[in-house]
Design a protein around this nucleic acid. Structure first.
Lengths: 242, 242
DNA sequence: CGCACCCTTGACAATTGTCAAAATGCGTGG
DNA sequence: CCACGCATTTTGACAATTGTCAAGGGTGCG
């Protein structure tokens, strides 16, 4: 067990961020056979309409779930950071209704559906763990629907930043100088249903109010309370254990 | 087994609309003990922040999952029709991040989490069936995010109508004069992120184009192909079996 | 060093929201 | 069965927000 791979360790700490794992569960997870692949920035490595036979774990980098309009504009449905399982759904859905795009260069680990299936058939506890994971994922969707429909651009951006901050924090990726933030303002717009221009204006508002420091590489929250307040941020849906 | 209750029968046909159930599964489902309650129109019977110990099956009427903004406006996250399980999630999530509002007078059947838990612990097959159900539910969220962010009001409404039509069709609730549609235009706006005025203008556009007939009680699609075309409707995400 | 890509800014257009009032429809009680 | 009252739909004028378009300036990578 001393040779626990990076993938396994990452998955375990990620799942632990939102729920309790028994030793037995952990031991079983260690046995999962992963196939690791690296993806280039901008690569779409799973496409809408595909019927994958594997699910994947994001090990390094940023991946977005997305859907394209007829005019070719991308709508980002959710954004994923290391430890996330961005297409766990494909285990039970025949045809995917979204694609997965690497935003940055990424490392992705794949595991066969058949293997997961066998795992869940023998361990109801682990089935529940992964099911719950997909339910938390659905909570992110609800937050997105609400945010995009009911919040003005600046509040919307602030709220999104709060979510990303807490998610990074939950897996230990926030340092005193903030967290890795390799997202263009155009891409943020694709997630929030705004134009790059509108995102830019909102970014400047938050900067002017001394709430954040943000460049193409990192994002630092200068005043969490003030930001969360402006953002009307209620973290219940993230289901993080204290 | 001849005294199979309405609830049970409804649940079975609903699950069958999107997946295959074995005879063994069906037999087990028949044993579920339901507690039936009627709710008045407009009653919020589950609140954001609650920690329910039961999940529910909608037997009759329309229910919406919703979240309220600070200014008190309601955002509808999803709309549910008979056969749906609108808070299956609560089985695995501690605190709900949404409420359930009855739109019309409703009949709702409740089943204890503990009972479901036992069921899923003993039958991985049924656990998978319900898990999958919650994944289809997440697909509705993805559709909503895309629709609300990328579609103009009229297309958005058309797309939503297509979804509702197919969902009603899947459970046999569409007749030659359409399907039951007790939704005010204001409520539709709360789902689509539009004002009642904007919804009204879109309704008139669709009517003028002879695509639908719609009043406060029923909705009839006059030309499915034309409507689906205008709506850029791709039903993959509903995961309906042909 | 130069070429992409991204951020920033400004002027302007267009869509959708806001507000208010009239018309219509529905349910209830007399 | 009719009358009344409330909720909903419809309409129009207007305001405001956000999108569109275009150009200039940075920045980093090859």
């Amino acid at each position: 067990m001393s040779d626990t791979s990076d993938e396994t360790q990452l998955l375990i700490s990620r799942l632990s961020a939102t729920q309790h794992l028994s030793h037995a569960d952990i031991d079983v997870l260690r046995e999962l056979p992963w196939r690791v692949e690296d993806k280039a920035a901008r690569a779409q490595f799973i496409r809408e309409g595909d019927t994958p036979t594997e699910s994947c774990l994001l090990v390094r980098g940023i991946v977005v779930r997305s859907r394209y309009s007829m005019q070719g504009q991308r709508q980002i449905l959710s954004l994923h950071i290391p430890g996330d399982l961005p297409d766990l759904q494909s285990l039970h859905l025949e045809q995917l209704d979204y694609g997965l795009d690497a935003v940055t260069p990424c490392r992705v680990a794949f595991v066969e559906h058949a293997v997961l299936q066998r795992l869940f058939d023998t361990s109801p506890a682990l089935a529940a763990v992964f099911w719950r994971e997909s339910l938390v994922d659905a909570g992110l969707y609800r937050a997105a629907i609400f945010r995009n429909a009911r919040m003005k651009p600046t509040v919307r951006l602030a709220n999104y930043i709060c979510e990303l901050h807490r998610r990074h924090e939950a897996i230990g990726l926030v340092t005193p100088d903030g967290f890795s933030f390799p997202l263009s303002q155009e891409l943020i717009g694709e997630a929030l249903g705004l134009t790059n221009v509108s995102v830019n204006r909102s970014v400047q508002t938050l900067r002017d109010q001394q709430l954040i420091r943000m460049d193409r590489n990192r994002l630092l929250v200068l005043s969490w309370d003030a930001l969360a307040d402006l953002a009307e941020f209620n973290p219940t849906y993230l289901q993080l254990r204290d």
